[in-house]
Amino acid sequence: QITKEQLGLMKVIVDAYNTHQIPQDVAKKLLQEQYSEEENFLLLTEMATSQVQVLVEFTKNIPGFLSLDHEDQIALLKGSAVEAMFLRSAQVFSRKMPNGHTEVLEERIRKSGISEEFMTPMFNFYKSIGELHMVQEEQALLTAITILTPDRAYVKDQKAVERLQEPMLDLLRKLCALQHPQEPQYFARLLGRLTELRTLNHYHAEMLTSWRMN
């Protein structure tokens, strides 16, 4: 059973998740027609920068985060920025978009100089996230859990991070049991997505390098 305290925690996380979104004007640019490859590339870079800023604003609201060691805060954010970005953009692809928008987005990403080798794992991830039909609370909590990953590089006090992540994992487990009673494996499947996310980190780093070269 979810305790009153956990309900409070969930509300804080979901409110922060909803409050801090990519600004409408930036997001709208993604849907405008006819961009050249260079413009697509610059647009995606602008989106990535905006997503990182949104991520930091969201993370500041995670109870206890700002009381962590300052450099550990940086290490956690740096270590999770790419994963949180893919997790967030996956929801854009899985939400019911007005007809044609998803195709325009996909087309834009395919025509931005990113090679097929990185595209496939990314769209596979979007598909596997879409199949889960996550509710907003699950998306917000999973993002917070991704950020509070204790074993990120350069994190000094891993125990302190664990103490923040644990209640989130417990809450997500209970939420999954409530939301998906007929799917006892649902929580495990969600955590499985986090493993898939980590592989995207590797692809993203290689993608940046190849972008720089062309």
């Binding site: 590339f41 870079t45 920068t49 990182v52 930091v56 604003e57 500041k60 954010l77 940046l208 972008w211």
Partner: peptide
Amino acid sequence: PASNLGLEDIIRKALMGNLEE
């Protein structure tokens, strides 16, 4: 493009809360 160094700058600046620059 936002290089890795850029990523840390964006994070530090956002953490300090002065996004307007």
